[in-house]
Amino acid sequence: MKSLFFKFTAILLTLGLSSLSDMEENINTQSFQGKAYYLSKSKMDLGTWGSRLSEGQKKEIEARMKNRLQKSYVLTFNKEESFFNEEDKLDAMSGATDSWGKNFAPGDQYKNVKTNSQIQNQEFYGKNFLVNDSLQPITWIMGKETKQIGNYLCFKATASIPSDELTWFNFSWSKLRNTNSTKAKTDSIQGDSKTDEIAMTDVEAWYAPQIPVSHGPLEYWGLPGLILEVSSGNTTMLCTKIVMNPEDKMEIKAPEKGTLVTKMEYQEIISKKMQEFRNNRGGRGRG
């Protein structure tokens, strides 16, 4: 009987320690929190049309486009979750928010590195969508280069990512033309195993191992430290301020309102709607 009592006590202690361990892990995850503030700057690309403009005209266009070329974001994170959103910014010339640009800008984004999930709220012409998908797979190549960003020693990492995967929330007529062209080729060539080359974007990131989380802005994640700077295409995003364990804790929650779709489904919806707009006005979209 005494032996049975000791065995029963040992089982209870084991269960108790296991529950306590789970509880401590949950508390540590929730109590460890930070806020990273990012400034995003994009270079204006006017294409061949821009070559016909004077320097004065280019500067005037750049001033008008500043609210789209320069944006501010906040990333709130704990060990497993993050919430990324744009700080509201008024148009310097009109005093209004950029309503057109918001249709094709990244919405509020929730990521969970433990469950490999991403939920993003997108608004498209007054309708809310809840884009639920897996995190973007990224194969990082770790470099040895370092540089100081604020108080943090950062290490370099590079990757090559399909361009459409980085801009799935955006739309361009050139992307639509390429999609239609690819579909036409696929339909006309039966049994041909040859596939079109996928456009890739080279990405350069700098991460801080001193902040041991795998988070980063936008689609970027998966490094052994918070990503403080990332450059891709004509855009660079730089962390300008970090607040670790702020006094006012923010509950990190995934967006909940909107029509549930995947990234691919969302792209199909906006492409179809933009084609309708073009057909209704009897004009042609510009790339």
Rank of each mutant, 00 (worst) to 15 (best):
F77I: 01
V261G: 08
I27M: 13
Q120I: 10
M23N: 14
M44E: 08
L4R: 11
W206H: 07
S82C: 10
D248A: 15
E219R: 06
R177D: 07
I189C: 15
T179Q: 14
T262M: 02
D187W: 00
E197P: 03
E247P: 07
V243T: 14
I138R: 09
A254I: 02
G222E: 08
M65R: 13
G47E: 05
R281P: 00
F124L: 13
I269D: 07
Q190W: 07
P106N: 03
K156T: 02
N128Q: 13
D187N: 08
I270D: 07
N132T: 15
Q30G: 00
S181R: 08
G287K: 12
W173R: 13
N245E: 09
I270N: 05
N103H: 13
N279F: 06
K257Y: 04
E25L: 11
K2N: 13
T182W: 00
S160G: 04
K41N: 14
E197K: 15
M274C: 05
P255E: 03
E145A: 12
T259W: 00
F155T: 04
Y73S: 07
E87R: 12
Q136H: 06
R286N: 11
Y38P: 10
Y152S: 08
G95T: 03
L135V: 03
T9A: 15
I138Y: 10
K2M: 05
K272R: 10
K144T: 11
D187F: 05
N178E: 14
R278W: 01
K58W: 03
D133V: 02
G143W: 06
V113L: 13
Y125D: 06
S42A: 15
L166R: 03
Y37R: 05
P137C: 09
G16N: 06
T236W: 10
N245G: 00
D248F: 09
E219H: 11
F104L: 12
V261W: 07
G150L: 06
A96F: 13
Q275P: 02
L135D: 10
I269Y: 08
W221Y: 09
E219Y: 09
T235M: 12
P137G: 12
I242C: 09
I11C: 11
E86V: 04
K175V: 00
K35L: 11
T201I: 01
K249R: 15
S42C: 01
S51A: 08
L53A: 05
T146N: 12
S117H: 03
S232L: 01
R284M: 07
S54G: 13
M200W: 01
P209V: 04
Y220G: 04
